[in-house]
Design a protein around this nucleic acid. Structure first.
Lengths: 236, 236
DNA sequence: ACAAAAGTGTTGAGGTTACACCCATGG
DNA sequence: CCATGGGTGTAACCTCAACACTTTTGT
């Protein structure tokens, strides 16, 4: 969708006052990262709207696919953000004016939005994120070094970060952040990163294997000194 | 709001396509119960819409207060129900026609709604639920004997039932279902009811007291044989 | 041979289970 | 004094934290 279309487009095909924001989380170089878009000097979460004839879950899948090009990306509901002053007016006004485009304060994008926030765990290596129609740039940011963020998106991203920490303790979600085949040391370091604390290596391994969710594959051939770790894969 | 107003009213003050549904849960005579409204031969959850100038949480509080007359009722987010075919068309058409009122298929109420479902735990004794504008009757139903329900409200209510079971195991939510002062046997039976299984009486009591969240009050004077139980109250 | 990495074993502390026991109260 | 209900104690069992030990591999 080109910029001309955006201008004339008044959201006719979408549910008004309702948006979707996505916290797309990846894991790279031992750090948790988040995909952000640059718009008018601020960074914001990727997102979109729900088509009239489309279920919310389908919309999330569609928007996710636009960003990740993955066929079946993981996603999980995070929270509703429904403050009465949630609108992008300032951001979009700046964006339009920067480009010398006409801005009306009753533009469709200036309305108040209730947003449904989801988080998605992806394997960065498999990804090819594409810049959207509105964003000048797309980049991954470590959760420890977030840029200046627009609207309330910083609180959304931090909520996702905390939710992940909680969810990982009762659900197996980490598969989505790793390749299909992975080693226990890799999984161990990932859990330590998410939880932000040291985990006993011995206990972690035994706990994971006790779940009986893993299929042990031949050992991985490494170049570094030390024993070669087994590869594992999810059963089924 | 009288029925005439409903007719001319086209939802101008509310966010369109977005509704709130409430699973109001109480505990009475040893059973978990849910508040339902009768509309056109079906029973539905109480609910409402979000005002343009109002946050989602404020809307939930307002709608809850309309139903319960409680000043600060408990509530917790349950889930988004966003199927593309979620509309009340059939129900409202029947409701209007029963009364000989004109019905147009493009009525505001016939649109597709994304609903935000919340559940609320209340002490039935403190309540005075008022019939809403649309409902012919209001009643409490045990979760084991739900009536014929409209739309997807049965799946919402069952989801709330299961969520409660999960949540009770990590959070103290049960206070809201009991009077301010309660005994351990009462709390014990409540947990057994919610979880649907027997819990060891001794262990339950010790676990609860170990949390150190309770203030022990003088014993309750009963009429029945056996030792009198202590009363407890939440600390703070 | 040595250091580093990975896998497994051991021990004790602390929690949980399933009861048993005791006390209070009304009939 | 007995049945009932409520509070507490206890021994067996299980789980888990902490650390030790062993094996594998590159230099």
């Amino acid at each position: 969708m080109g910029i001309e279309k955006v201008l004339e487009y008044q959201g006719r095909d979408f549910l008004p006052n309702l948006s979707i924001d996505l916290v797309i989380i990846g894991y790279q170089e031992g750090a948790l990262k988040c995909l952000l878009l640059n718009i008018a000097d601020k960074w914001v979460l990727p997102g979109g709207h729900i088509k009239i004839e489309e279920s919310v879950d389908t919309a999330v899948q569609r928007i996710l696919k636009e960003r990740t090009a993955l066929e079946k990306p993981h996603f999980k509901f995070l929270s509703v953000f429904g403050d009465s002053n949630r609108n992008f007016l300032a951001e979009f006004k700046a964006f339009f004016e920067e480009r010398g485009l006409p801005w009306q304060k009753d533009h469709w994008l200036a309305q108040r939005f209730v947003t449904l926030a989801y988080y998605s765990l992806v394997d960065i290596e498999q990804l090819s994120p594409k810049p959207g129609e509105f964003d000048e740039a797309v980049d991954w940011f470590s959760f420890d070094e977030l840029p200046d963020m627009g609207l309330d998106h910083e609180s959304i991203i931090l909520k996702a970060r905390n939710r992940l920490k909680e969810d990982i303790q009762r659900e197996q979600l980490t598969y989505n952040l790793l390749q299909e085949e992975f080693t226990m040391p890799q999984l161990h370091r990932l859990h330590e990163t998410i939880l932000g604390e040291k985990l006993d290596r011995s206990r972690f391994q035994k706990k994971m294997l006790a779940t009986n969710q893993f299929e042990r594959l031949p050992k991985l051939k490494k170049e570094t000194p030390g024993s070669n770790p087994y590869l594992y894969r999810r059963k089924n």
